[in-house]
Design a protein around this nucleic acid. Structure first.
Lengths: 141, 141
DNA sequence: TTTTATGCAAATTGTTTGCAGATAA
DNA sequence: TTATCTGCAAACAATTTGCATAAAA
């Protein structure tokens, strides 16, 4: 928590209980929650925090480069405290989102760079399918 | 146009002037327009067509597998009559969206399949950067 | 004639904004 | 103290929906 407070201060963001709670939650999960999910799961510990504060905090953290926004094709955004440009795999059965290693994009990056003459800055890569667990439970039926 | 009418009929969709106009426009562009852009550019030839009809038509075409929806990270969707699962490069200066060949994803697909045990179904791949033309005009300044 | 599509206006939903009071520095 | 944040309610924008009329099959 101390570490997160330092990260906020380094970006000249005031350290508030709300910000710490949101940042901390994102920092300790790989579930890529949405604003709504974050809001609901912090209801118990921060019952007075509003959804608008969640949105404003996520916006501030994102602008500071401390988190990133994902758009996996749902109707709302998800957030990730892993700010490296890494690909994600999404299970179409359970809707969970998993991280992949960034370096599996190296081949793609170099191919695109040589095919297009673009100066590439970033990328968003989402793969869709069925996760091992859901494959199992589908077999059983 | 005859060809497009056949494609609609094959999907049991009624062939209306609005649907033909929208489908035809998408079929003859690589600009990946949004619903709003399609609506505006068809105003001249189809002044009575409503935006709701554009949305309903895009939805029908998409469900029939005749077009696909893109989410390049803007506040609205774009549409593509190329329904193959191909990557896109987006220029952050001029906001144009370009198609890439599907097969440059082969390496990524096989890497992800072997790393995750997912059964992969599809993918959305967007790369961001500066296109050759915008690189030129930035040099001049 | 039957079925499906269109066009209008109203509804929906995730997200943003304005602002007064509260809190961090 | 003063600069910034919070929380509420209202605003927003892209998209969807209900329904009466119109057009396709």
């Amino acid at each position: 928590m101390q570490k997160l407070a330092e990260l906020l201060k380094a970006k000249k963001l005031k350290v508030t209980p709300q910000r710490l709670a949101i940042f901390n939650m994102l920092y300790n999960t790989t579930s890529h929650p949405s604003a709504e999910t974050i809001y609901k799961s912090l209801q118990e510990t921060h019952p007075t925090m509003s959804l608008a504060t969640v949105y404003k905090t996520l916006d501030a953290l994102q602008k500071a480069g401390l988190i990133q926004q994902l758009n996996v094709g749902e109707d709302s955004f998800r957030y990730d405290a892993n700010v490296s440009s890494h690909p994600h795999v999404i299970c179409l059965e359970c809707n969970r989102v998993f991280d992949l290693e960034s370096d599996i994009l190296n081949d793609l990056r170099s191919k695109v760079a040589s095919n297009t003459d673009f100066d590439l800055i970033s990328e968003k890569v989402y793969l869709y399918g069925t996760c091992p667990e859901c494959k199992e439970s589908m077999k059983e039926e």
